[in-house]
């Protein structure tokens, strides 16, 4: 039988013994935040606990909050329950949360990926009895190439645009994907310009992490100076008047959803690059095996299909609902 260290209730993921929530979606007294994406770090909690690298991000997003930073592996105990944060490799400052009580160990993965992206602290495997995993890309159709290959594709795209004297636009989520691109693209090709939403986060992150120079697009930026350079903008700017001012440009998107030919065509984007901050199918299955967990709780994504598969191959797999997956394809923060 499962010893319920964590329960999914209307407020969030709850640890009754410690009276503490993780990634709560309604205001609560005390919450541990896995990472800075808006659906995981909500406004209105009385006390926030998160990794040091995520503290400035949460403050930037939510303003003045009562927040405390923790180091990787630093153990903190609440009413006998030991908590610690371990790198999830999803975005900078993203953690898995380890919960230990009377020898029983649970790990909440948050969002995660296995590949070292060169900017987030690489994923650390934590063995446990029960593993709560995301499964955003939990069907075998998803399989990522290694990052160098994808960055090379984007560099090539950038070069092609430069040759035609066009502006290369890449739509990428402002926290995570944007910095991953900035840290890995070949800056010998040209300069990287950013939308203000991206640049504001860059500035926050630069206070504790080296990031190559980027240029914020302002009212004064002339479209001529963008030609041959690369612009990183949030997906919501697609089709906006802000973007239209940059003609001639070619649009692209860097996301795991770009695996599907249909997804790119639906968005009327010229180029799609398959680059995700989540685990693909094989890494998902591998991680579950390596945690040596017997019980797997599937949230966020193709959870019905994935848990059915896990049950078939001998795990106790369950489904729990979170509001994270409601928009499945609407959220672009992969």
């Amino acid at each position: 039988m499962r010893v319920s260290l964590l329960e999914f209730n209307i407020n969030g993921i709850y640890c009754p013994q410690a009276d503490t929530y993780i990634d709560a979606w309604r205001p609560v007294d005390r919450v541990i935040i896995s990472h800075g994406h808006a659906d995981h770090s909500k406004y209105g909690h009385k006390k926030y606990l998160t990794h040091h690298f995520n503290v400035p991000i949460v403050k930037h997003r939510l303003g003045k909050v009562n927040i405390e930073g923790k180091s990787w592996g630093e153990r903190f105990t609440i009413n006998g329950v030991h908590f610690s944060l371990h790198p999830a490799g999803h975005v900078i400052g993203s953690s898995q949360v380890k919960i230990e009580y009377k020898g029983e160990v649970w790990v909440y993965s948050g969002d995660y990926k296995r590949e070292n992206d060169g900017i987030s602290t690489p994923f650390e495997l934590v063995k446990c009895h029960t593993f709560i995993t995301e499964c955003t890309f939990g069907i075998p159709a998803f399989s990522w190439k290694n990052q160098n290959e994808v960055m090379e594709e984007i560099n090539q795209f950038w070069n092609e645009c430069k040759l035609l004297n066009q502006t290369a636009i890449v739509f990428a989520y402002s926290l995570g994907k944007a910095q991953r691109l900035i840290a890995n693209l070949n800056l010998d090709i040209g300069k990287i310009y950013t939308h203000a939403a991206v640049e504001n986060l860059n500035e926050v992150i630069r206070t504790y992490k080296n990031l190559p120079e980027t240029y914020k697009i302002t009212r004064e930026t002339k479209k001529e100076e963008l030609l041959g350079n690369l612009v990183i903008a949030p997906p919501s700017t697609h089709g906006s008047s802000w973007l239209k001012k940059m003609v001639p440009y070619v649009t692209s998107s860097a996301s795991g959803w770009m695996t599907f030919r249909g997804a790119r065509r639906r968005r009327a984007i010229d180029r799609g690059f398959v680059l995700s901050d989540h685990v693909d199918w094989k890494d998902l299955v591998k991680t579950i095996r390596e945690t040596e967990a017997e019980n797997i709780v599937c949230t966020h994504g193709y959870k019905e299909i994935f848990s059915k598969y896990l049950n078939e191959i001998g795990y106790n797999a369950f489904i729990e609902n979170t509001p994270f997956e409601e928009n499945e394809l609407l959220v672009e923060n992969d």
């Binding site: 599907f260 249909g262 997804a263 499945e328």
Partner: peptide
């Protein structure tokens, strides 16, 4: 679910 550009919706 749709096909082509509407796959997965």
């Amino acid at each position: 679910r749709g096909h082509g550009r509407r796959a997965n919706l």
